[in-house]
Amino acid sequence: MTVYMNELKQIARNIRIDIIKSIAEAGSGHTGGSLGLTDIFTALYFKILHHKPSEPQWDDRDRLILSIGHVAPVLYATLAHAGYFPVQELQTLRKLGSRLQGHPGRDHGLPGIELSAGSLGQGLSVAVGMALTAKMDKKNWRVYSIHGDGEMQEGSIWEAAMSAAHYKLDNLIAIIDRNGVQIDGKTKDVMDMDPLQDKWESFGWRVLNCNGHDFEEIQQAFTQAQATQSKPTVIIARTIMGKGVRQIEGDYHWHGKAPSKEEADNFIQEILKAS
């Protein structure tokens, strides 16, 4: 599937609308981070990843590990738009019997879910394990893992970071959603993690930066990351929580808040007008 850059914006717009609809219908869920990561997910699933929506278990697929399970709505909406399952199913989010669990759960059978996750700080270790398998078996598939900036406060992230560099896992690309906020407020007030770039570099990683809402920059970062040899790469993607809906952009109160049906309509109108 060849997708041109100018089409990505339209896809991202549709994914944002479905994120808002599905969370509003659920009555709970993480709106801010899901909207903030939409452009990166769109780039990944429509441009970067080697994958087959019709064959989710394809052996040679790239693996996408979502360590921050709470932004499941962006994963689900992107998978649906990529063709893994019908878009209408997004309306079952967080409901009894749904394959779309509040945090991803593989045992509920949704195609495209690589990992059940939701307790922060675990996904990078799993990504390291998968990358080791690919190296051992001399496979070309890569592992991409998605992390929050607040998640950098978990000690296990740094255990995993150390091990990825130790085993020179250049088939592993981590992405940090650097929106500068977490539930309690700004990351620099809750627990400052700067200088973040220096930390990762000192742990033996290549560090790339990009604007997480600019498809050219996102694409460029991934191209560079894929060309990196003998060390893992982390992309620190500057993002805006709630991106696309001006009245909630950058507002950490929207980390884990769902819009009412009325708010959702307004948000969607705004997204439609902007495009």
Partner: peptide
């Protein structure tokens, strides 16, 4: 903690 996660990735 990392060992357990890496084990999971290897198993998956």
């Amino acid at each position: 903690q990392n060992c357990m996660g890496v084990a999971t990735g290897l198993a998956l």
